[in-house]
Write a protein that binds this DNA or RNA. Structure first.
Lengths: 109, 109
DNA sequence: GCAGGTGGTTACCACCTGGATACCGGCTAC
DNA sequence: GTAGCCGGTATCCAGGTGGTAACCACCTGC
């Protein structure tokens, strides 16, 4: 997940800050905890993850619900989940035109 | 066009750099020249416009064709035009959820 | 030949994003 | 009671993005 040559690094479409899109993807299949998110998001530092999560919370895309024993769960809100729609459109576009994008980049070297 | 309270300033979705999305929108209805683009993109400085246009050209989204007497025309490529699809999806999402976004922002003040 | 428009370029700079590293308070298990 | 995990903070810093202001070569019209 989230390869280093991930299309999301090349495609000129971004959702929120650098990590927001990936975070939403991570939460797509259910709530996750802070330290669970750190694993797929290889290399993210706690500070940056915290700030991304806060922005997403402020914008009403995810919820932060503390559980017992400082476990904290992050989950998509309906609004956040609705954002998967344009995200999927963007991903589909990127996949469809992946080759063209690469060609354009290469031929302009 | 491109109001100061334009949704694109609030929505967490961006296409390319700060101006790329608007440039593509400007070219949607046909080729435009450098100085024609400066008008709808109020406040853009020539330097920034140049760099945005170059990035878009490098990525194969627009073409730059010099005409007679240093007139230069910028136009969407098929690839660039195809990007209108995910852009429209994003715009539709933003419009549909505009109120929710505003509410979330306000209630977290 | 010179004024003005066109399509830039150059130099400089402020701000913001994201990253590195270290640290920390609360809770639980042993 | 102390070791260790969890969910963060605090501090500092490099690089990139976008902006300001000034300048410029080229062509056209008068």
């Amino acid at each position: 997940m989230f390869d280093e040559v991930c299309p999301s690094g090349l495609t000129p479409i971004r959702f929120g800050d650098k990590w927001a899109g990936m975070i939403i993807r991570c939460l797509e299949s259910g709530p996750r905890r802070f330290s669970e998110l750190r694993i797929p998001l290889r290399g993210i530092t706690p500070k940056v993850l915290t700030s991304s999560l806060r922005t997403l919370t402020r914008d009403g895309l995810i919820t932060r619900t503390p559980g017992p024993a400082q476990r904290v769960e992050y989950a998509l809100t309906p609004l956040g989940r609705s954002m998967l729609e344009p995200m999927n459109a963007a991903c589909a576009w990127a996949q469809d035109h992946w080759e063209e994008l690469l060609d354009a980049r290469e031929s302009s070297t």
